[in-house]
Computed example of a mutant assay.
Amino acid sequence: MGEQPPVLCLRFRRIGGELPDSAEYEGLIALLGAFTPVVEAAPPDAALADVSGALRYFGQDVTGLASVIRVRALALHGVDCAIGAAANPMLARMAARQAAPGTTFVVPVDGAAAFLGARPAAALDGVGAATARTLCGYGLDSVGRIAAAPLATLQRITGVRTGRDLWERANGIDRTRVVPNAAARSIAAERSFPRDELDPEQHRRALLSLTEELGTRLRTEGQVCRALAVTVRYAARSGYATLTRSRTLREPTAHSVELAGLAYRIQDSLGLQRARVRGIALRAEGLYEAERAAHQLTFDPVDERARRIEEVADRLRARFGPDVVKPGRLAA
């Protein structure tokens, strides 16, 4: 078989193209656990799995093992998988974005340079629109050109740490590993529209509802998050497409106002103002205990008042139910 890529990234969709619900997602994670104990959940619709041991145990190559997983997911949960296989999590995630539903896209262990070379700079993990514009201004508009650039040049353009991260990723180097039982590092929620929704105000309301839900849940569980990821499912020429983008918060928080503000900025950056949206999902990432988080003190009375109101609202929700207090924008 030769050396096989040991990491799979799976993106789940129901047969109709919708995201799996929470029960289906948990079932899919359990299904992966039957093949390998090294499974990292990335809700609401993805997971990473280190299958190096499973390849030897089942005597399959990576394409064959991916096919077995896909058949079981379809048979047991009615969910299809687009699967990327590569030598590390970063490349596997990029490969999964290239895979069509029901297919497996494999990046050979020695094929990272060929896979990455012609891709635009923005295709790299961690490269947002602003960084991509900066790189393009210096002629570094493809991953191959970034990989060929001297490390010192990248560090001068983007900073020491960012420059090194860019150079490593462009050369297919990812020092992260698949972390088993990592579901608690993120939580997610989703809103689906009964039909394709064109009204941007309805999109905004859905995001606000999601941030209220996740914010309340984080505070109840005594956690904060470091980043948010917004996933939008919208109508395209060939059916439905999804677009996901994440950003880091200025400080770890569970404050709903801060979460909503960042979620709105992420949504605006997607450029889908005229899209026919069918569903929006929000994921809070990088969770850890709130008591370990540092909060930048301010003298802003509006911020302090909002936090006090939030505390009172949380107590009311805990006593009378989650819908007893909600923002006025959601009351209609």
Rank of each mutant, 00 (worst) to 15 (best):
M1F: 12
G2K: 11
E3W: 08
L8K: 04
G17E: 06
E18C: 09
Y25T: 02
E26Q: 12
E26L: 05
A34R: 09
P43L: 00
V51E: 00
G64P: 09
V68F: 05
V68A: 11
L74P: 01
G78T: 06
A82V: 10
A82Y: 05
P89I: 06
M90C: 04
M90S: 09
R93I: 09
R97F: 01
P101M: 03
T104K: 01
F105P: 03
A130V: 07
A132V: 12
L135M: 09
G144P: 10
I146Q: 04
A148E: 03
A149S: 15
I157W: 08
G159F: 07
D165Y: 15
E168H: 04
N171C: 12
I173W: 00
N181E: 11
A189D: 12
H203V: 07
H203Q: 14
G215P: 07
T220E: 15
G222R: 02
R226P: 05
A227M: 05
A229Q: 07
R233V: 11
S238E: 13
T242G: 15
T242W: 01
L243D: 00
T248K: 11
Y264E: 15
Q273K: 12
R274T: 12
G279Y: 00
Y288H: 12
Y288S: 06
E291F: 10
A293S: 13
H295Y: 15
H295M: 13
R315S: 06
R317A: 14
F320A: 14
P322G: 02
D323Q: 08
K326T: 11
G328F: 10
G328V: 08
G328I: 01
R329W: 06
